Simulated assay, not measured.
Amino acid sequence: MRRLKTIIDDLLVLARLRAGDPAAYEPIDVGALVTEEAAALTGGVPVHVDADRDVRVLGNRIQLIRVIDNLLVNARRHAGTTVEVTVRRAEGSAVITVQDDGAGIAPQDRERVFEPFVRLDDGRRREPGGSGLGLSISRDIAHAHNGTLTTEDSSRGARFVLRLPTTDRRPPAPGTPGSAPDRPVTQGDSRVEEA
């Protein structure tokens, strides 16, 4: 019964994301968020975080926590001894990489793992009760934040990379051409794009 409730809840989240339901957005330091979520994990495979400071994105905190938690739990499930997480700022994006040292994902399955209800054999063996919706929801959340979630080549294990646009581009100084008065970003703001 509990598993059925989890699946129904996940399907409702997926439906809301795909319908473009509005969500409250705020500036978030993703390095701090990732560090906090990793520190909250107890027992199991250790997670090591190397995060740049003050890497900010505009996003929904609850949704971003869900993506990060999904990636961390997934990596720990498949890791042999460790999970390595980095948060970097690169070319206008926050780049969050979650890497485990497990068996990895075959190239032909790297896109398939993001489809709803897809569970590879190793995942079913390690967690028989999973729904196969976590990565699909995570990718939809990334898209809702104008970002991407992909798997990338790795010399060992699986490597998931979440890219989100940063908010740290410096605005023009007040009084210069192109400058605008500072104002808070609100849900109806045209700068907040919904997927």
Rank of each mutant, 00 (worst) to 15 (best):
T186D: 14
V13R: 14
A40Y: 04
L71A: 12
T82F: 03
L135R: 01
Q187I: 08
V113S: 14
F114E: 07
A142N: 03
I137M: 02
V113Y: 04
I62W: 07
S136L: 07
E26W: 02
S131V: 00
R119S: 14
R183D: 15
G104E: 06
P22M: 11
T6R: 15
L164W: 10
V87A: 01
A94L: 12
A103G: 11
G157Q: 01
H48A: 13
L41N: 01
V73Y: 09
T86E: 12
P172E: 02
A142L: 09
A90K: 13
A180L: 05
R169E: 02
A94I: 11
R56P: 09
T81L: 05
P22V: 04
G44F: 08
L33P: 01
G92H: 12
T151W: 02
R2T: 14
V34E: 01
P171N: 13
E152G: 10
Q63L: 09
V30T: 07
T82R: 06
I68Y: 03
R169A: 15
D109V: 11
G44H: 10
A173V: 10
G178V: 11
R53P: 11
L11I: 06
S154A: 15
A75S: 02
A51P: 03
G43Q: 03
F160E: 04
L58T: 10
R18T: 09
D52L: 06
P165R: 03
